[in-house]
Amino acid sequence: MQIELTINEKAVKWEVAFDELLADTLRSHGFLSIKTACDTSCCGLCTVWIDGKSRLSCSILSLQAHGKKITTIEGLPKEAEEFAQILSAEGAEQCGFCSPGFIMSVLAMKNELVNPSEEEIIHYLTGNLCRCTGYMGQLRAIKTFLGVV
């Protein structure tokens, strides 16, 4: 079936199967920043924005994205680069596999929360797993990024 959606500010028409998941559709159209690491909606690696809200692209049918506005990290080059610079200065992109989804969550958080406390930051990002870094370096990077101590 054909769906129409906006991907990173660009209107597209895509042919998708009824049971196709958005993460797969996005990858097949070359949005290779989308990583997946589970089949159970647990890891957060596949995070994108749908109408500005962070969502698991592995857990939504592509058809349900019809008419919606999708943003991937490819669509936020400036913001993503800014945070990625801080993250990698900290060394906290170890294998980097979790980073795109993590960055999408961090940027969503920046849009949604005003002056979040450390606890609020941790709570907001609990759905982003990382096996390499132990999370401390990511937190340092976020604090630098948000200008909080």
């Binding site: 080059p77 990625a84 993250l87 200065a89 980097g96 596999f97 960055i103």
Partner: peptide
């Protein structure tokens, strides 16, 4: 020195550099 990883920016921003990509 705490030098940034040479592949850091590419992997952090999701560039296609892994096996499946």
């Amino acid at each position: 020195h705490s030098i940034r990883k040479i592949d850091g920016m590419a992997i952090a921003t999701g560039k296609p550099v892994y096996t499946e990509d």
